[in-house]
Design a protein around this nucleic acid. Sequence first.
DNA 1: CAGAATATGTGTACGGTGTAAACGAAGGAG
DNA 2: CTCCTTCGTTTACACCGTACACATATTCTG
Lengths: 183, 183
Amino acid sequence: MKVPASLRDQLLDHAEAMLEAGESEPGIRALARAAGVSAMAPYRHFADKAALLTAVAERGFATLAAELAAADASGSDAERLVAQGRAYVAFARARPALFRLMFARPTEGDPAPEKTRENAPAFAILADRVAALAGRDAADATLGCWAIVHGLATLALDSRVDAPPAQVSAVLALYVAGISRPT
Amino acid sequence: MKVPASLRDQLLDHAEAMLEAGESEPGIRALARAAGVSAMAPYRHFADKAALLTAVAERGFATLAAELAAADASGSDAERLVAQGRAYVAFARARPALFRLMFARPTEGDPAPEKTRENAPAFAILADRVAALAGRDAADATLGCWAIVHGLATLALDSRVDAPPAQVSAVLALYVAGISRPT
DNA sequence: CAGAATATGTGTACGGTGTAAACGAAGGAG
DNA sequence: CTCCTTCGTTTACACCGTACACATATTCTG
């Protein structure tokens, strides 16, 4: 019963695979070749290269959100928060090219964490955790939290730091300790 | 006395200008055109496009380090640290393309903050400030500090957050408050 | 069912890129 | 003067994204 997957999905799959293989920006022609189709065929499914890559990025955000949610599944609030952070950085280190691509896509609308569609769900979960820990300044704390893990992730991708899980935990735990204190 | 600047410097200048003008990756040919020279001329001065862009990045790190040092010039330890953070993010927001380019260049050697040549000087200053504030966990705190500002900077460039100076100050001040407390 | 409309893929072509290879012209050293 | 080095040019190739015109297949409509 395995119908041969629409070309659209094939292209996205190959793009994801090439990203995972280290390619920083899969090209339309390469993807078409991989799918055994002419160079112009992809354009029946995507307006242009950017649109295709944006679709890949969207997938990436979905799986990132899933992994974050999984990490957030159990433990104390603080533990969950730290686990999320580890998952975030782990995702970035496991799929560097994809991670970079995801955040390199231009966003529509104003810059605000909860306004940017792809980040909204994950950001909401994070905000919940932080709210449970920090009384006042919850907004700043949430942003700081995201900034820390995102910073560690990108610095790791650009090999400015190593950022193994243990280090992420340590840095994040320190932050949590500083945040969660009587108002 | 104005000798007409070596082609090498002209190319770097134009590259910097084009980056400042929004171009994400100035091309060899475009730079050659800007310098009024043939497309192959740049290759007399740079092995390839990557080498040229790396040279631009190096310049960028130098001016970033200078701006950080300037911000660090006066005030209490905490104030200096926060000022550095503001300067870091301000730099990124003022020269988004350059900032991205700087960190996108591959680094030689192991990933370690103080080992990566371009970052070493600025990182050392940062480490000093943090050491003066946090007793134990100074290493983690330093890394956390860098991660926060770098995270804010990159998230701002990818328009995930706005990150105006006030926000940077707030987030960073919160972190400093959490860090600097009786051992 | 016929015929038209829509969806999907192909072939060709244009202008852009980075860069390899071979060639010239200018100046200093023997 | 001749030779070598430095700096630039010309030409050419392979690749890229994509506009345009065409073929075919599927589906909708009367």
